[in-house]
Design a protein around this nucleic acid. Structure first.
Length: 571
DNA sequence: CGACGGGACGC
DNA sequence: CGACGGGACGC
């Protein structure tokens, strides 16, 4: 299922060479086996082709005119029936860049073009092989990036870099269950595909971003209802469209699909949902009713509640969905509110900002307030392994995750400093307060009310006198000095190294080569590096004897590519 | 002696 | 409901 990674070459340098291919560009296929041209070009770059369900009368020129404002359209293909030549109401549009396709989808989905009445349904095209099959969490594939992160990098730092491309749903770094050390990769999830695409194309290449495979869905206790849950196939779930007649006989008499276009206001619903529901879950629910065209979920800033706009292709479906789902408890304890969307008018696309009109902001009597008060409790819950449930999304959870990480950082700084948090709860190494100071680790094997030191932690800590903790340098800082570090017999844990080497200021990154006893520290300032050498060379840290010296320059930048690349054609 | 990292989400 | 064609000498 791999999304094609365009380029697997890596220099380990943060500044990628000017002539190297980036995620935004396309490959040259001229030398490639023709049999693979087609497959390859559709996914290059990944998710850059649109699948559009549309009225049958729209022409290629109509599409070009409507879509070329979002980027470079390399192909428009209006699908026609092989035998009859009749348009099938399906069109593919290929863009040169993923972000162009993303923007076009966000802007054009639900819109009409020309004077063709039927609104377009615009989706990112699947691979030919996947076809129309839907996947369990597939919207994640468009919103979430898989990234490689330096082991010393914290979630705050990761967020800091990726916030420049758009609003972040969450970031997470995967950590070892027991040691809580970073495993060197993580995820960044956005709310909008165009933001994820921008990050995919423009983030620092050392992150090696990929659109993440959707996470297998956690079971979402959906008992108490006949819903077989997201992923269950449509229509077989107790909804019986055929047996349903909408309240208004007039509406019901309209032809379902292709006849006169439905007034959009009658095919669009406004939904208020629990803050815990994400767009995917909402989609799965409403998709139980055939005829769902799209859902646009937004969140009310104050209440955190989901405000969704749900578009159906016909009045019957919309009316049926409203009737069956209004008041439905989903998830249990949270009633959905489903109405026809009175605020909708033709000028307003699904993605134009749609502040919920006051009359639609219901007070939900059944809904508990979004647990504000207990900040500390919330953070603890977020850190505790028991905090299951769906992935956090939305500002509240994001804030909690943020807070949890800050606390985890402070805790491990205290650990690294060898201070008993009970004895010196105020004095700890709060130096990481700017978000840069902390190791990625959580509090290690922790029990409520006390911190248990990791097994391999040597309480003698460090033989040298250490300065106070310092903030780290920005990840994209220019490297002023690189140090080579050797640890005998074994290296201290990463969070200790980061804390100790960070105390001389301006530390960008430090890592131990995997399976080895040596590694590198990068400083943004030469003086800091020199102080580190003076203070730490020959000293002992966690029972390891340290050698700390300037690193030999990285000679022979072998990118790992033997292939002759023809990017030297200057003229 | 010791030289250039890390890749799929909780067992 | 709504998922895959036609054309092609370019490098």
């Amino acid at each position: 299922m791999a999304d094609s990674r365009g380029d697997s070459s890596s220099t380990g340098s943060y500044r990628s060479g000017g002539s190297r291919r980036t995620n935004g560009d396309m490959r040259d296929y001229s030398g490639m086996d023709p049999r693979y041209h087609k497959e390859a070009k559709y996914s290059d770059p990944p998710n850059s082709r649109l699948f559009i369900v549309c009225g049958k009368s729209i022409t290629e020129d109509d599409f070009r005119e409507a879509f070329s404002k979002y980027g470079t359209v390399s192909e428009v293909w209006v699908v026609k029936d092989r035998a009859t030549g009749e348009p099938k109401g399906v069109t593919y549009i290929k863009f040169n860049k993923t972000s162009e396709a993303a923007l076009a989808m966000e802007e054009m989905n639900g819109r009409c073009i020309g004077n063709h009445p039927r609104p377009l349904k615009v989706l990112i095209a699947h691979s030919r092989e996947q076809g129309s099959r839907r996947e369990q969490n597939e919207e994640e594939r468009l919103l979430r990036l898989f990234v490689v992160v330096p082991r010393a990098m914290t979630e705050s730092e990761l967020r800091e870099h990726f916030i420049t491309f758009g609003d972040i749903d969450y970031v997470s770094i995967v950590k070892d269950r027991t040691t809580k050390e970073s495993k060197g990769f993580g995820y960044v999830k956005y709310h909008r595909m165009s933001h994820a695409a921008k990050a995919y194309e423009n983030c620092d290449r050392s992150f090696k971003p990929m659109f993440a495979d959707p996470k297998p869905v956690r079971d979402m206790r959906n008992d108490g209802m006949m819903l077989s849950g997201p992923g269950s196939s449509v229509s077989s779930s107790g909804f019986d469209m055929a047996a349903y007649t909408p309240p208004s006989g007039k509406m019901g008499s309209l032809p379902p699909m292709e006849g006169a276009p439905p007034a959009e206001a009658c095919t669009r619903l406004a939904v208020v949902a629990s803050p815990t529901l994400n767009q995917d879950q909402l989609w799965k629910l409403f998709d139980l009713v055939p005829g769902l065209d799209f859902i646009d979920l937004r969140r009310d800033r104050k209440s955190g509640q989901g405000i969704a706009s749900v578009q159906f292709s016909n009045i019957q479906s919309a009316a049926y969905a409203k009737e069956k789902l209004h008041g439905f408890e989903y998830p249990p304890g949270h009633r959905l509110i489903v109405k026809f969307d009175p605020s909708h008018d033709m000028m307003m696309g699904p993605h134009s900002l749609m502040p919920p009109p006051p009359n639609m902001m219901p007070r939900m009597p059944m809904m508990p307030p979004p647990a504000p008060g207990g900040v500390g409790n919330g953070a603890a819950a977020a850190m505790s392994p028991g905090g299951a449930g769906p992935r956090p999304s939305g500002s509240l959870q994001t804030d909690l995750a943020h807070l949890a990480e800050t606390i985890a950082q402070a805790t491990s700084l205290i650990q690294a400093a060898g201070i008993n948090p009970h004895a010196a709860s105020g004095g700890g190494g709060g130096g990481g307060a700017d978000g840069g100071g902390g190791p990625p680790a959580g509090p290690g094997p922790a029990v409520p009310g006390g911190v248990v030191m990791p097994e391999h932690y040597d309480p003698t800590y460090c033989s040298a006198r250490l300065p106070a903790p310092q903030p780290l340098a920005a990840l994209d800082s220019t490297v002023a000095e690189r140090l080579f570090i050797v640890c005998h017999p074994a290296p201290p844990p990463p969070y200790t190294l980061k804390d100790v080497f960070g105390r001389f200021g301006n530390l960008i990154d430090i890592y131990i080569l995997s399976g080895k006893t040596c590694g590198y520290a990068k400083y943004a300032c030469k003086e800091s590096a020199e102080k580190a050498i003076q203070t730490l060379h020959g000293q002992e840290l966690c029972g390891a004897r340290l050698k700390v010296m300037p690193a030999e320059p990285q000679d022979k930048v072998d990118t790992g590519r033997k292939r002759i690349k023809i990017d030297d054609q200057q003229f």
